[in-house]
Design a protein around this nucleic acid. Structure first.
Length: 431
RNA sequence: UCCGGAAUAGCUCAGCGGUAGAGCGGGUGGCUGUUAACCACUAGGUCGGGGGUUCGAAUCCCUCUUCCGGAGCCA
């Protein structure tokens, strides 16, 4: 007898194996009993026939409840009814624990109930698929960056100041040093890293205390920030495009069964792996105004604008060269037009919205200082950041990816809250 | 923060002025191929809290609480 797991069943057909896992569902009809068994690697139907198993074991098995933990031995064979799938003929059952009445039933539940039971909801097949997709997306991003000369550079989560002045921060007391804040982005710290390592990235939780209440927002989410020395605006966008297209290919290649569970239209994903569209902010505004949007020449894109811009596009859309008033202080001015900055957003198709924000950074000390003063920023806390422009300043660029936004798009699910094990939202911190 | 909506059995919902309902889940029994299995029986409720209108309120009105959807902000 061999210990194995569900995903490796095809290698053991006809030979007795042992599997350790849980009951997803159970049905019985007199002398026959069907257990939908799962073990983390996948799920399989296990069948027990009373005369074969014996009365005692069969009665033990009949008492199994949803999510009971158990170890089964049995012989895997072709499924009697479903071609191409397998089932286990049970030869033995060891109940590890009879589960109490499981709160999550077989019928539909509302989001509030499911989120209150998130610790259990994570076991259901759709959530299982999303968690595995998250794993694939996370490591695809890391692999691509590792292969393109980027070094992991972990920026701090406890910070003395905001990286971007306007948004709201989670504040806490920091011993005798006054207030500290949970990081909104490691970007400014990453800029120090490139002066040592050339190309760097971080990947960790960031925090936004905005009272956002939409399906695209979390108060705690995972962001990958990348930064590269001697990379300018155009090359910055090329890196972003290469990375996203690599993630698409990886997901299609490694997560076929997960995407099927999620009922994702994989053809739409496949078509997104092609050269991305590019337009300037001014072009986007003209296009949107022609479509009836109320956006102004110096305005930011609204939620509907993002949908309109990508509605007819198979591929993600870059919007670049933004009015400086609506973008962060550290973005480099456009040499061709001092009213603009060399920033870009990347909008996912199918209405999934912004997944990347990036820019070339202002590398001139005096221009950066004047931008900070114009925005009434305190200078002293950012002296270290200004120092970077005094000691060997170079042109450099970077971008940040919202991991959960990217997963939402890849998986095609409706709400971002399902893309992270324990979503933190304005009205939810349990469990 | 603003604009909508919702709250009835453990869960998902119906009932919208006249005796509180269904499906799932639970319990008991039946069934040798089930696919959110099925069939029979059964237990389960201060209709979110408070106040009002009415002969009579789950139902109409006010208020509070909680949640959902959207906007803005952003990834």
């Amino acid at each position: 007898m061999t210990d194995t797991c569900v995903k490796d069943i095809p290698a053991h057909l006809g030979k007795e194996i042992r599997l350790k896992g849980w009951v997803r569902n159970i049905r019985h009809s007199g002398k026959l009993l069907f257990i939908i068994f799962r073990d983390g690697s996948g799920e399989v139907q296990a069948v027990a026939f009373k005369p074969d198993l014996g009365d005692d074991l069969f009665e033990q098995a009949k008492r199994l409840t949803l999510e009971s933990s158990l170890i089964i031995t049995g012989i895997p064979k072709q499924h009697q009814k479903l071609t191409g799938s397998y089932e286990i003929s049970i030869t033995g059952i060891e109940v590890v624990q009879y589960a109490d009445e499981y709160p999550i039933g077989k019928k539909e539940h509302g989001p509030d109930f499911l989120l209150s039971n998130r610790h259990l909801w994570l076991r259901s097949s759709k959530q299982w698929a999303i968690l595995r997709l998250r794993h694939a997306v996370y490591f695809a991003i890391c692999n691509y960056l590792n292969d393109h000369g980027f070094f992991r550079f972990d920026s701090p989560i406890l910070t003395p100041n905001a990286c971007e002045g306007t948004t709201t921060l989670f504040e806490l007391d920091y011993f005798d040093e006054g207030k500290a804040y949970l990081s909104q982005s490691g970007q400014l710290y990453l800029e120090t890293g490139i002066m040592s390592l050339g190309r760097v990235y971080d990947f960790g939780p960031v925090f936004r205390a905005e009272r956002s209440k939409t399906r695209k927002h979390l108060t705690e989410f995972w962001m990958m920030d990348a930064e590269a020395a001697y990379v300018e605006h155009d090359e910055n966008m090329q890196i972003q495009e290469g990375l996203i297209r690599y993630v698409i290919r990886t997901v299609l290649d490694k997560c076929a069964s997960e995407l099927k569970i999620l009922e994702r239209d994989t053809e739409r994903l496949r078509r997104a792996d092609a050269p991305f569209k590019r337009m300037t902010h001014a072009e986007a505004v003209a296009f949107l105004q022609a479509k009836g949007s109320g956006i102004t020449r110096h305005g930011d894109l609204g939620a509907q604008d993002e949908v309109t811009l990508t509605a007819d596009s198979d591929v993600p859309v870059f919007v670049e060269r933004w009015p400086k008033e609506i973008k962060a202080f550290y973005m480099k001015r456009d040499p061709a037009n001092p009213d603009l900055v060399l920033g870009n957003d990347l909008l996912a198709p199918e209405g999934f919205g912004e997944i990347i924000g990036g820019s070339q950074r202002e590398d001139d000390h005096d221009l950066l200082l004047s931008r900070m003063k114009a925005e009434n920023m305190p200078i002293e806390p950012y002296q270290w950041f200004l120092d970077l422009r005094k000691y060997g300043s170079v042109p450099h660029s970077g971008f940040g990816i919202g991991l959960e936004r990217l997963i939402t798009w890849m998986s095609g699910i409706h709400h971002i809250r399902e893309t992270i094990p324990f979503p933190r939202m304005i009205y939810r911190i349990y469990p």
